[in-house]
């Protein structure tokens, strides 16, 4: 565990150093993403001002909470584990070889070896939203932190799962991108606007509801049973994804494409 943490720390340092190699690009992309996100919350503010009260049982403050968790959680996943969305590419070009030749956990090493510049903007934006909406509400901040960690982990697991399908069915790039879209859209709107079938999806195949809507409901009213069910589902989903990736590795056929580590 200590070794893995040390490797993770090293990857983070290298990713950040790689990102700031082009400082202007890094700052403009991170700042641009935070600015882009803020337009969405502005539209929500207009909607609540016009309609007043609640939309699908969510108040404006609730929307701020789910947006904050999603944005910072997304940022967390893409700062530390952005390479998860390159798994299909690594499989098809044979670049997984480099990771298989190292004495460490392959999945952890693969997903940690890349970052997304804009994710730093997403990460900060969620915190700014919380600071505006829930300034001194320590209880809300507590559930925010829980939600962020779970969202970060789940988004990474969802990405790994869909991209691991490439081991079995060829190119899964589109499925991977779609799953990320679902993971975002399921999280940034009140859950009741979705049909029951879609709601089932957001607690099973793309279970980001656990990371966003459940922490919000627990913030409103704590329930031990719901907490336990959520924890079991998250652990189960992550374990399944880990197994699914490992099983896929046995089908890996490598390749001889010329590759460089960016």
């Amino acid at each position: 565990m200590k070794k893995h943490l040390k490797i993770l720390k090293c990857y983070f340092r290298l990713n950040l150093a790689s990102a700031v190699e082009y400082r202007a690009s890094f700052i403009s992309q991170a700042f641009g993403m935070a600015l882009s996100n803020s337009t969405f919350i502005f539209f929500w503010w207009i909607a609540f001002s016009q309609l007043g009260g609640n939309i699908a049982d969510y108040s404006f403050l609730d929307v701020i909470f789910i947006w904050a968790v999603t944005s910072t959680g997304y940022g967390l996943s893409k700062i530390f584990f952005a390479n998860a969305s390159r798994i299909t590419q690594l499989i098809s070009t044979g670049e997984l070889d480099t990771y298989l030749l190292q004495p460490c956990n392959i999945l952890l090493s693969v997903i940690s070896a890349g970052t997304t510049l804009t994710a730093y903007g997403d990460f900060c934006y969620g915190i700014i939203l919380m600071a505006i909406g829930y300034t001194r509400d320590i209880y809300a901040w507590g559930w925010f932190i829980v939600g962020v960690f779970i969202y970060g982990i789940l988004l990474t697991a969802i990405t790994v799962f869909t991209h691991s399908l490439s081991f079995y069915m060829g190119d899964a790039t589109v499925l991977g991108a779609l799953s990320t879209e679902f993971a975002i859209n399921f999280a940034i709107y009140p859950e009741k606007i979705y049909a029951p079938l879609i709601r089932t999806l957001m607690y099973s195949l793309v279970p980001v509801g656990i990371a966003v809507h459940i922490p919000l409901s627990l913030y409103r009213e704590f329930s031990f049973e719901v907490t336990l069910a959520a924890v079991v589902t998250v652990i189960g989903y992550c374990c399944f994804t880990y197994w699914f990736f490992g099983r896929g590795l046995k089908r890996y056929e490598s390749g001889n494409m010329i590759a460089t580590r960016i």
Binding site: L14, A17, S18, T98, M257, A259, R261, I262
Partner: peptide, 11 residues
């Protein structure tokens, strides 16, 4: 492996 690098390109 001459075709695959262990080194980080930008660092």
């Amino acid at each position: 492996f001459g075709q695959k690098s262990q080194l980080w390109f930008h660092l």
